[in-house]
Simulated scan of single mutants.
Amino acid sequence: MKISKHNTEHYIWGDDCDGWHLVKNQDLSIIHERMPASTSEIKHYHQHARQFFFVLSGIAIIEIDGKEITLNPQEGVEVPPLVPHQMFNKSNNEVEFLVISQPTSKDDRVLVD
Rank of each mutant, 00 (worst) to 15 (best):
S38G: 06
D113P: 14
L98M: 12
S4K: 02
G19C: 05
D27W: 02
T8S: 14
F52H: 13
F53S: 11
I61P: 01
D108L: 10
S91N: 06
D107Y: 05
K5W: 06
S38F: 08
V95A: 00
H32D: 11
V83N: 02
I42E: 15
V95I: 13
E78R: 11
K67M: 08
C17H: 07
Q26H: 12
E63P: 05
K5M: 03
A37F: 02
S57F: 01
Y11C: 10
F97R: 00
M1E: 15
P103E: 06
K43P: 15
G14T: 00
M87G: 06
C17R: 10
P84Y: 04
T39S: 13
E78C: 12
D65I: 00
I69V: 15
P103C: 11
H44V: 09
W13G: 10
F52P: 09
Q51P: 05
P103I: 11
V55A: 07
I62G: 05
E41C: 14
Q47T: 12
I30E: 00
P80W: 01
K67D: 03
Y11E: 11
Y45M: 13
W20V: 01
P103G: 06
D65W: 07
S105I: 07
L71P: 04
K43N: 05
C17E: 05
H10D: 15
L98H: 12
P84V: 09
Q26C: 03
E96W: 02
F54Q: 08
N25A: 01
A37S: 09
Q74L: 13
A49R: 00
G19N: 06
V23Y: 12
E63S: 14
I64E: 14
P84G: 03
V99R: 05
V55C: 11
Q51E: 14
G14N: 04
P73D: 09
I69Y: 08
P84N: 03
G14D: 04
D16M: 05
K2H: 11
L22E: 11
V55T: 11
F54H: 14
H10F: 15
T8I: 13
V110T: 11
S101P: 07
D108G: 08
K90F: 04
I61F: 06
K90A: 02
K24R: 13
N93H: 14
H46C: 05
